[in-house]
Design a protein around this nucleic acid. Sequence first.
RNA 1: GUGGGUGUAGCUCAGUUGGCAGAGCACCAGGUUGUGGCCCUGGUUGUCGAGGGUUCGAUCCCCUUCACUCACCCCA
Length: 418
Amino acid sequence: MSITAIKGMNDILPGEIETWQFLEATARNVFGTYGFAEIRTPAVEKTELFCRSIGETTDIVEKEMYTFDDKSGNSLTLRPEGTAPVMRSFIQNRLHTLDPVSKLFYMGPMFRYERPQKGRYRQFHQIGAEVLGVEDPKIDAQVLSMLNQYFCRIGIESVSLQINSLGCPECRPGYRQQLIDYLEQRLDSLCADCQRRYKTNPLRVLDCKASGCKEATVDAPEMLEHLCADCEEHFSAVKKHLLALTIPFEVNARMVRGLDYYVRTTFEMVTDRLGSQNAVAAGGRYDGLVESLGGPALPGIGFAIGVERLVLMKGEEKIIPPVPQLFIAALGQAACDQAFVLMTELQRAGIRAEMDYQGKSLKAQMRRANKLNAAYTLIIGEEELKSGEAQLKCMADSKQSQAKLGQLAELLMEKLTK
RNA sequence: GUGGGUGUAGCUCAGUUGGCAGAGCACCAGGUUGUGGCCCUGGUUGUCGAGGGUUCGAUCCCCUUCACUCACCCCA
């Protein structure tokens, strides 16, 4: 076996790339109408950025990051998500001084060292968006509206929007302790994982799929019942605005987050079509993150979409790549040379032209023209070279006509556009 | 990190209770000395994932390993 790609890192080949281009172009289009501008940040950042933003004790930071020392001994990390780099760039470039509200979107590869499986890869791609500087719950609803519209535009319907509120530094610690106390009394019923993590990440227990944990937590206290007045008001307003915008959603009080920086509104677009990787997009509010990274005290909210998961959902709906508009079948050395010049001239004129380079028989060349799905085939041999007129065959109806070689581009343009 | 499944032609997969390795599709050529699709005829392609063991003989049995894949976990 020769050299292969890294485990969990995939090539995107012709035939599939068209779907990616469609998904990306649609994102640029939809996000653009909502006033978002694209931003691109490096694939590598200082390790510290992710430790401080995502959280030291999260799985991502503890065991999933591609971290290495460069030749100067700096600890660098391939970005495992997109929000932290955007925040870093936002702060570093003082974007808040240009406009009190920043709406940014990005797309690109992310890296996490996980065991690959369907919909989960070591290099994966996210399309994400962030709004900085708005605390009004209207912006929560607008971000969800944009996400909702994006899914409509790309033609994916089998997803549902789930929302929750995680409270804030005012109300969450108290609730968290209450939950720990509750779980402590039912430790025996919990699975091994939950017995281990109920203290460090008690909210995760509520999301556990083990039957014992599910039963033990049916009456567990929920964050939504313990929100402080401000958080309660915020969450109510988000729901009100979503209703006003007729965006369907359901409240999932047990939705948790893998990243520490989320507060208040969190949401996911989930599907039942992708096995265990059921989230195709997720995000939430992260007031306080910018400040904790050394920037101004600005609220923020954003989301990320898993592009591989969208591609999986688009599945069989292949987008057909462009086919040649003309195939030139040439016979003999002189005609081949002339055909090569002709083909290049047509390409310069913007016409997708193809020819054969292997000196094949006319029959074989016709077969290839057919296989490539070319609209027209030009047949050119010794006779045609002399007369300056060649046979132009329409592949759809098999009709042939004479075409002057000098006026081929004009003729084709006319035929192809009608 | 844990557990299961699968590795045979370019692709999808058969197969052999251990005895020279198959089909369909694809590809190539011919049937038409310069005309595609349908049809017909013929043809090419494999270290049967890798390494070791058992055996007269292994693609098949055993061990190891790698890759892919699904699930757990985690998450987009």
